[in-house]
């Protein structure tokens, strides 16, 4: 794993250490998204952070996995009524529920990941997925021999288009002539958990000449990575560091440090230094990044590493601006 604690998170970590001394009694709770906490990706990242918090503090964290849209509000309200505090909502679909319940319980602290709720008792955490996706796009274009790279998304929603758009920009940045193949898995939430279809889409893209595929589709990605391994092609993981799934064919992973957010939310609340507001974590803050470890070290040549690191430095320095799809719901850059 690359160095993660930079400026932003560094400050948070320092606050944590200060907080342990006067650890307040908190009753943390987390409401997972539809995908469920073992999706090997987004929710599981949060769960890892929660587990780390539990192991370190020996506190219990109440949790709930929803099965329909109405349960978001129900779960947040039930936790709030029981006096759970802080309550962590995972995923953009929870923003409305958090907004409603946070108004009713102004003394309880809420943190929502991937959504924005502007209330004095809510911390909203957003990630610049487009920046991380840009970097893996650069790497994909550099690793591709055919000049064709692929993208497999979950559902065709703005959040996934943000991944795709950042990736596309990275690919074109490294190789303006590169061709990008894109597919979405489905139109229902089942699309986040359909490895079979993920594998089929990946095979289709390999047939059409792609040799590196980036999957941003939750557990569906597992099928994409398997297909890449079966064909000896390359795949790029998402959200969690998935390099270990198939060492040798996983080019890298676009990591989104939701685990750190989950861990820090509870730690800050414990220390009494939790603050409301909107936090946007990008490359600069270590919130998103590309993953380089022993599992993919052999696939990344020193030149590739240098190019990606240079692009990263340029983004952080502001020399490259990666267009955010969600800023205007269009991928024109």
């Amino acid at each position: 794993m690359k160095t993660l604690t930079r400026s932003g998170l560094c400050g948070i970590a320092a606050a944590c250490i200060a907080g342990i001394a006067q650890a307040a009694d908190i009753k943390p709770a987390v409401v997972f998204d539809m995908g469920g906490k073992f999706d090997k990706s987004f929710n599981e990242g949060v769960n890892n952070g929660v587990e780390r918090f539990k192991a370190e503090t020996r506190m219990t964290v109440a949790e709930f996995e929803v099965t329909n849209e109405t349960q978001f509000e129900q779960a947040h309200r039930r936790f709030a009524q029981r006096g759970q505090d802080p309550i962590l909502g995972v995923g953009f679909t929870q923003a409305n529920a958090v907004e409603k319940v946070a108004k009713e319980f102004p003394k309880i602290r809420f943190t929502v990941i991937d959504g924005v709720v502007k209330l004095p008792n809510v911390q909203s955490v957003l990630f610049k997925e487009h920046e991380g996706s840009f970097l893996v796009g650069v790497l994909a274009a550099l690793a591709s021999r055919s000049g064709k790279v692929g993208f497999v998304g979950g559902m065709d929603i703005p959040l996934i288009r943000r991944f795709a758009c950042g990736y596309e920009q990275g690919v074109k940045y490294a190789n303006p002539k590169a061709e990008l193949l894109q597919n979405m898995t489905g139109t229902t939430p089942a699309a986040w958990n359909d490895p079979g279809r993920g594998a089929e889409l990946a095979k289709g893209q390999f047939e059409r000449g792609a040799d590196v595929i980036y999957a941003a589709a939750g557990a569906t990605g597992i099928g994409v990575y398997q297909a890449a391994k079966d064909r000896g092609k390359l795949a790029i993981g998402v959200d969690s560091n998935q390099n270990h799934l198939h060492p040798g064919t996983m080019l890298t992973s676009m990591v989104k440090r939701v685990d750190v957010v989950a861990y820090d939310t509870f730690k800050l609340a414990m220390g009494g230094t939790w603050t409301p507001g909107v936090t946007v974590l990008g490359l600069k803050d270590g919130g998103v990044d590309w993953a380089l470890d022993k599992n993919n070290a052999a696939l990344v040549t020193p030149e590739m590493k240098a190019r990606v690191e240079a692009a990263k430095a340029d983004i952080i320095a502001g020399k490259i601006t990666v267009h955010d799809y969600m800023s205007n719901n269009a991928c024109a850059y």
Binding site: F92, T93, A95, G115, V116, M155, D156, I157, P158, L159, R161, T187, M326, N329
Partner: peptide, 15 residues
């Protein structure tokens, strides 16, 4: 999905 993402989405909304 098509209508919600492309047509009916509230302006400025992320989801």
């Amino acid at each position: 999905v098509y209508l919600m993402v492309n047509v009916l989405i509230a302006p400025g909304s992320m989801s």
